[in-house]
Every structure is written in C-alpha cells, then in structure tokens.
Write a protein that binds this DNA or RNA. Structure first.
Lengths: 221, 221
DNA sequence: TTTTACATTTTTGAATGCAAAATTTGCGAT
DNA sequence: ATCGCAAATTTTGCATTCAAAAATGTAAAA
C-alpha cells in the first residue's frame, strides 16, 4: 500500500468518527487492520498531526484531535474566507459547462429539500461548495479548503435543522447560483460569507462541544 | 531531538535555499548532519511533503519542491485572501497595545526605507504583516498563513525594487497602519489586497521561474 | 563507435529489534 | 479497605536490518 493511501485510510477512519475525538489511537491494532508495520503507520500519523487531525503527545502516543468551541469558530472563520476567495476567483474563471453542472447539482439539491431528504441535501450542498472551489482553478486554495472542511466535518456536529433555517439556506443557495451565473464575484463572495456565517452560528448556538471522554456531545434543541 | 525540531530544521534548510528547488534531498547526508537515523528523517520529509515544501516520488526519493509560475500565482492569490481576512479580523480584535507595537514597527520600517536599507526594510515589512495576522487571534489562519508564505519565500525571487515601487509600497503601508488605527476592517482588507496584488505583479513580471537544474533563474530588469 | 542486454551497486521503503519512558500491577503499611 | 510506592509490563521512539526497486557500470554485438 502506498504512503498516501495509508494517510487517506486513517483520515477516513478519523472522519468517520470510528476513533472518537480525544481517544487514543491504538497503534498495534491499526497496524494489524491495515496490514502494515509501525513505521509507515507512524509516518502517516505525523502527517495527519501536521494537518490537525491528530494530536501527538511526546512519549504518550497519539490521539484523535479534539476540537474546542474556539477551534470550531476559528475553522469556520477561515473556511468563510477561503470560500469567499474561491467564489471571486470562480466567477473570473468558471466555464459555461461548469456553471451548467453546478446548476444541475443545485436543482437536484432543491429537489432533495422538497423531498425533505436531509442526508441527500447535505451531500448535494457539499458537492456544490466543492465545485465552486474547484472552479476557482487554484489547487493551493483547494488543498487548504479540503483540509479545513475535513477538520470541521470531523466534529460530526448535528444542528437542529428547523424549517426556517433550511428554507433560508436554500434561498441563499439560489442567490449563490444566480451570482455564479452572472459571474458576479463580489456578490458571490458576499453571499457565501453570509451563508457560512449562518451555518457557523447554527453550529455554535447548537452548543458544539467535544467532551473529555472522547465521545461528542450533541445538544439538539 | 524532538520530531517537531527535526521538521523545523529541515524546513530551515529548504527555506535557506541550501537545498535548491528540484534538487534531490540526500537522505544519508542529512542523517549524519542532524545526527539522527533515517526513520525520523523520513517522517519529517513526509510532513514537509504534506506542507508542499518537499516532493515525494515513489521509489525515487524526495526532492525539494519546485515552484512553477502557476504555483507562484496560486500561492499569492491565497496569501492575499488570508491576509485580507486577517486584516478584517484584526480590526475587530486588536488591542491598543498591539496597534502601538505595529505603529512602532512601521516607523522603524519607514526609517529603513529612508536609509535605503532594503534588507532591514523587508524584515520589518514581514514583521508587520505577521503582526496583523497574529492580531487576528485565529491560530488556524496563522498556521495556514505561515505555510503559504514559507512556500512563497522559499522561491527566493528577487524583484527589481525601483524607487517608484518602493515609494508606493511604503505609501500603502501608511494606509495599512491608518486603517488599523481606525479599526476599519473593510478598508484594511482592501488595502492589503491591493498591496499583495502589487507584490505579486512585481514578482511575476520580474519573470519568476525555477529551472530544471535546481537553481533558480532570477531575471532582474 | 554506438547500442543494448545483463550484472552490480546503490537507494528506497518497510519490518524488526532494542533502549528509554510511561503506565499498570502488586504488595505492604496505615 | 485504601493509599503509597516499587516492580513488572506495555508502549513509545529510534536504530538497524532486510527485501525490492532503480540507477549505474560493463561487456558484447551491431
């Protein structure tokens, strides 16, 4: 197995929450599971530590990183900035074909909203945001975005999705698509910021927290 | 020596240009120099690869990453976005003491400009930008900024600093300080963008390029 | 003289082994 | 029974070793 694959597989394990935040990462066990020895595993853990997904404690092993409220706020803030930038750049560079693809994804997402299928809605939502970042044509930006969103997603927060919030989010997405189609960079940037700010407020208001024990607390209204 | 120190020392070697872009990284030699064995060295190299400073080629060892023109453009674009965000956040959170410190650093930098001391000017310039990012109070943002600027600085480009350009840069810095003192986030963000855009134009117009051989070409007007 | 096939050397990537550090266990004292 | 302390065990971090892949050198053939 290639080095990068080892990193990806452990990343997936962390993102799936299989090893909860704050929990020790069982070296020996992971070695057996991935059928590799400790050397490549430890190399991967150090890479993931640099990414912020793993926390290394000298002579005390590695743990799945635990996010505080402040961490979450910081990550959202940066994510907002990155998406705003991506939006501006995307408007300068996006092709008609890419816009059409996003419009199609948008329509599908709206249908999931009408169907009340939250899971599929989230999936479509994420695909749209990723498509905008991709359309910015900046791999450096895309890389940072992936890393930051991975850390956010890692938290597996659940926010109470009220009909009002959901309707607002869909409305914002209409505006996002509209700005993209008009290639209005400043406008798109502005809408994306507001959209992310609302999402952040949701998450933090919902009372995001990761407890000492390693499992997460989800305060659902 | 601690893992993180190994990473830092190799990073420094790369940033100093001691191993030029595109050049192979001599494992055995570095091991002797840092007085460590291959295992911790290779762990560090993989971390630096994730950071974008090192390029890993399967079964062919590692090389100091080489930046293309496009990479440079992408990095500057992201840097611009990060600094703009930092400026906005800094205006919300910066303390009077921090503003005073930046004002002092600014005055010192202007004096270096009057003295025609380019090296010291650059040093002061960098300190101010870092202070603004730090004042944003967002460690995630600070981390990404450090990583991106390291990669840019890695290139050791030299731009022809004409008196006009230099004067403009100083003028922009006056505006930066002014916006900070007025805590005008939008204004500061705007000025920082322009400032970085000018710098990027300088660098790219100067004809940044990194040749195959490993050393860099500096086209100085 | 140039090119190609093959053997040798070097280098890479990963497993194992070993010493140091931390954690757990066991036992005696209170 | 509980607390404290020392021995035993486990785990970590790194050096070494080993197999496989790539690079290099050599010699024979065109």
């Amino acid at each position: 197995m290639l080095h990068e694959d080892v990193v990806s597989r452990i990343r997936a394990i962390l993102l799936d929450g299989e090893i909860p935040p704050g929990a020790r990462i069982p070296e020996r066990e992971l070695c057996e599971r991935l059928e590799i020895s400790r050397t490549p595993l430890r190399e991967a853990l150090k890479v993931l530590a640099a990414e912020g997904l793993v926390q290394l404690l000298p002579h005390r092993g590695s743990r799945a990183a635990k996010l505080t409220d402040k961490d979450m706020r910081d990550l959202f803030e940066v994510c907002q900035g990155l998406e705003a930038l991506a939006g501006e750049l995307a408007c300068e560079r996006i092709t008609d074909a890419e816009i059409d693809a996003i419009a199609a994804a948008h329509a599908a997402m709206v249908q999931h909203y009408r169907d009340g299928d939250l899971i599929q809605y989230y999936r479509g939502n994420r695909a749209i945001h990723e498509a905008i970042v991709s359309a910015a044509g900046n791999p450096v930006l895309a890389g940072l975005y992936t890393s930051v969103t991975a850390r956010i997603r890692r938290a597996r927060y659940v926010t109470p999705m009220t009909p009002q919030r959901w309707a607002l989010a869909v409305k914002e997405h209409d505006a996002i698509l509209n700005a993209l189609q008009r290639r209005d960079g400043a406008g798109l940037s502005h809408i994306l910021r507001a959209h992310l700010r609302h999402k952040r407020e949701e998450v933090l208001q919902a009372g995001f927290a990761e407890t000492e024990g390693g499992d997460l607390t989800l305060k659902i209204a």
